[in-house]
Simulated assay, not measured.
Amino acid sequence: MNQFNRLVSEQMKTMEKLLYIQAELERCQEIEDELRKLQNATDLESIQDDIQQMKKELREIQLIFERQTEEVINSYRDVNLSASL
């Protein structure tokens, strides 16, 4: 069960990262909308670069989270199989 707890703990840390990046992405998109309204091309380009980088990081974290979910499920199955034998 120790392995399972470690995996769940890692997954919770990943989830915190995921939520943080999502919040930052939303914030940057709001800034992007405001800059569009102001038609400030230089700042707009900079924030668009930030948004693209955050989207890339978000996709990477989502893949990590999916992999961790599979590890948690497999660990839980192993624990239950061992307990039922």
Rank of each mutant, 00 (worst) to 15 (best):
Gln3Val: 11
Gln3Ala: 10
Gln3Arg: 12
Gln3His: 12
Phe4Pro: 04
Phe4Gln: 13
Arg6Glu: 15
Arg6Phe: 15
Arg6Gly: 14
Leu7Trp: 05
Ser9Gly: 12
Ser9Lys: 13
Glu10Arg: 10
Gln11Asn: 05
Gln11Tyr: 02
Met12Gln: 14
Met12Ala: 13
Met12Gly: 08
Lys13Ala: 13
Lys13Leu: 14
Thr14Met: 04
Met15Trp: 15
Met15Gly: 15
Met15Pro: 11
Glu16Lys: 13
Glu16Thr: 14
Lys17Trp: 07
Lys17Ile: 06
Leu18Phe: 01
Leu18Gly: 00
Leu18Tyr: 00
Tyr20Phe: 15
Tyr20Trp: 14
Ile21Val: 06
Ile21Asn: 02
Ile21Cys: 01
Ile21Phe: 02
Ala23Tyr: 08
Glu24His: 08
Leu25Glu: 07
Leu25Lys: 01
Leu25His: 02
Arg27Ile: 04
Arg27Glu: 05
Arg27Met: 09
Cys28Glu: 13
Cys28Val: 10
Cys28Lys: 14
Gln29Lys: 15
Glu30Lys: 13
Glu30His: 13
Ile31Val: 10
Glu32Arg: 09
Glu32Ala: 08
Glu32Lys: 10
Asp33His: 12
Asp33Ile: 10
Glu34Lys: 09
Leu35Glu: 00
Arg36Ser: 10
Arg36Glu: 01
Lys37Thr: 06
Lys37Asp: 01
Leu38Cys: 09
Leu38His: 09
Leu38Ser: 09
Leu38Gly: 10
Gln39Val: 03
Gln39Ser: 05
Gln39Asp: 06
Asn40Gln: 13
Ala41Asn: 05
Ala41Pro: 02
Thr42Pro: 02
Glu45Val: 04
Ser46Asn: 09
Ile47Lys: 01
Gln48Ile: 02
Asp50Gln: 12
Asp50Pro: 04
Asp50Arg: 11
Ile51Leu: 03
Gln52Asp: 14
Gln53Arg: 14
Gln53Cys: 14
Met54Pro: 07
Met54Ala: 11
Lys55Trp: 11
Lys56Ser: 09
Lys56Ile: 11
Glu57Pro: 03
Leu58Glu: 03
Leu58Ser: 00
Leu58Val: 03
Arg59Lys: 15
Arg59Ala: 14
Arg59Met: 14
Glu60Gln: 03
Glu60Val: 00
Ile61Ala: 00
Leu63Tyr: 08
Ile64His: 05
Ile64Lys: 05
Ile64Val: 04
Phe65Tyr: 14
Phe65Asn: 05
Glu66Asn: 09
Arg67Trp: 08
Gln68Val: 01
Gln68Glu: 03
Gln68Gly: 01
Gln68Lys: 07
Thr69His: 00
Thr69Asn: 04
Glu70Leu: 05
Glu71Thr: 03
Glu71Cys: 05
Glu71Trp: 01
Glu71Lys: 07
Ile73Gln: 01
Ile73Val: 02
Ile73Ala: 02
Ile73Gly: 00
Asn74Arg: 08
Asn74Asp: 06
Ser75Ile: 01
Ser75Phe: 00
Ser75Met: 01
Ser75Trp: 01
Arg77Lys: 12
Arg77Gln: 12
Arg77Thr: 07
Arg77Gly: 02
Arg77Pro: 04
Asp78Ser: 11
Val79Ala: 07
Asn80Arg: 14
Asn80Met: 15
Leu81Pro: 05
Leu81Ile: 11
Leu81Trp: 12
Leu81Ser: 10
Leu81Ala: 09
Ser82Thr: 07
Ser82Ala: 07
Ala83Gln: 10
Ser84Glu: 12
Leu85Pro: 03
